[in-house]
């Protein structure tokens, strides 16, 4: 049959096309992932449903204390958003180190999570904010916690006919992101990690959420590490415990970029760094995630 390329002119039109083509359909927007897979001949024949023209999917706004980001919003929009800079620095920082500036002009939030790469840079901040994914289909829409969105390498909980239209989360200015790749631009993360901390007056962490990528088949929440930190102050001994605990949260593999052992050590060290950064205790200027 060959490939087909259909440009949707509205969200309802896109949903109709998605329903019509079912499993053959593939949503494309920026194209920065799919075009590479096409070139490498790793993308079976399909019907591209192009949503690049849907301006209604490009926004960052605040509604009832939630930050809502349209799925078609580019990473370069995120890295230039004063709203995110002030209220959700973890996502802002992730956007700043995502791929490179020219890719960020095309790549979108919806594409980055929809592609479900274990190392997707926008995923850990969204997980740390305990965000939700707004999923539309022809006969309605549903809200999916982002924790349930990723199901495996390149796999999501989306059903045929469904489209991610928005991600939303309760922002937290006490949040941060750290990325370690093999170089400082155009790097695929070897470990990326985000933390969002609710600080009490006395400096204890009432709540803390940590999410880490590239160390398991999907980006994951570091629940064991969180448990060590919750209700305590970000002190050396406490963080040491959490560093040990994060080892049970992750399940890294060895690949062409890094070994399992490297990922384990770096995940530990970066957990410390990201928590301190979220608590605004900067012990370390100049390292990764600067």
């Amino acid at each position: 049959m060959g490939y087909q390329f259909i440009t949707a002119d509205s969200v309802p039109h896109a949903l109709e096309l998605l329903e019509r083509y079912g499993r053959d359909a593939r949503v494309i927007c920026g194209g920065t992932d799919l075009m590479v897979r096409l070139h490498l001949k790793r993308l079976p024949e399909c019907v591209f449903i192009n949503i690049r023209n849907l301006e209604e999917l490009r926004y960052i706004r605040e509604e009832d204390g939630m930050v809502c980001i349209g799925a078609g919003t580019t990473l370069s929009t995120l890295e230039n958003s004063l709203l995110l800079l002030g209220k959700a620095p973890a996502l802002f920082q992730a956007a700043q180190v995502f791929a490179d500036p020219n890719v960020r002009h095309s790549a979108t939030v919806g594409g980055n999570i929809g592609n479900a790469s274990p190392s997707a840079d926008s995923a850990p901040p969204l997980l740390a904010f305990d965000g939700q994914v707004v999923v539309a289909r022809k006969d309605g829409r549903r809200l999916l916690p982002i924790r349930e969105f990723f199901t495996g390498v390149g796999r999501t909980a989306l059903e045929p006919g469904e489209l991610v239209t928005e991600v939303r989360f309760k922002p937290n200015p006490d949040s941060a992101f750290v990325k370690v790749g093999l170089r400082n631009a155009m790097a695929i993360s070897v470990v990326n990690i985000a933390a969002s901390v609710d600080l009490a007056q006395d400096g204890t962490m009432k709540d803390v959420r940590i999410a880490v990528g590239a160390v398991a088949p999907t980006p994951v929440r570091a629940v064991c590490a969180e448990n060590c930190l919750r209700g305590r102050r970000p002190e050396e001994a406490v963080i040491r415990q959490a560093m040990d605990a994060i080892q049970t949260d992750i399940k890294p593999i060895t690949d062409v970029r890094a070994s399992e052992r490297y990922r384990r050590i770096v995940a530990e060290n970066m957990m410390r760094r990201v928590v301190l950064k979220a608590c605004r205790i900067c012990e370390n200027e100049g390292g990764a995630g600067r």
């Binding site: 390329f5 494309i28 920026g30 590479v36 591209f48 690049r52 155009m186």
Partner: peptide
Amino acid sequence: EEGDCGTCTVLLDGLSVKSCVTPACA
């Protein structure tokens, strides 16, 4: 042609993008 080197960069609607990872039909 994999979005890495950047020599194929063009302005698309005023923004610099890598043309090798930009679908022609879009």
